[in-house]
């Protein structure tokens, strides 16, 4: 009986070791609007914690109604992160592929600059 228990515990521990290891990735995004939009609210959406495809992660204006910036921390094992920006709740790049932010290989902070609605 103890052999079965030992085997079960070994398998459970063995498979736990086979889970992808995650690391914290800090992403700093900056997005410029193509033209100044009055009272613009710009956000970012993405696949996986902490971003979602349903709700905006709001960015703060560094130049009012023109340039917006923000950061988030992703606890992930992937090399990249898929996102899209939003303007007043409307998602950019309609019917086009998501933006892919590839994480920096040096350091844990990735900087990503983009122009809204331009891939």
């Amino acid at each position: 009986m103890y052999k079965i228990f030992f085997l079960a515990v070994s398998i459970a521990l063995g498979t736990t070791a086979c889970v992808q290891k995650t690391q914290k990735r800090v992403v700093v995004v900056t997005v410029s609007l193509q033209q100044v939009e009055k009272a613009a609210k710009v956000g970012i959406r993405g696949g996986g914690n902490p971003l979602t495809w349903e709700n905006d992660w709001e960015l703060t204006p560094t130049i009012t109604d023109s340039v917006f910036t923000g950061s988030f921390v992703a606890n992930t094992a992937y090399n990249s992160y898929e996102v899209k920006f939003t303007l007043n709740g409307e998602m950019e790049l309609n019917n086009k592929p998501n933006r892919v932010i590839t994480f920096a290989t040096k350091g844990d902070t990735t900087f990503y600059n983009a122009i809204f609605n331009k891939p």
Binding site: C18, V19, Q20, K21, T76, A77, Y78, N79, S80, V100
Partner: peptide, 20 residues
């Protein structure tokens, strides 16, 4: 993780994805 797993998933051989 298999040899044909998408590269961006960064999966090692026989590794299960971190979120699963």
């Amino acid at each position: 993780g298999l040899p044909w797993s998408p590269a961006e998933k960064n999966l090692g051989f026989f590794e299960v994805a971190f979120w699963f």
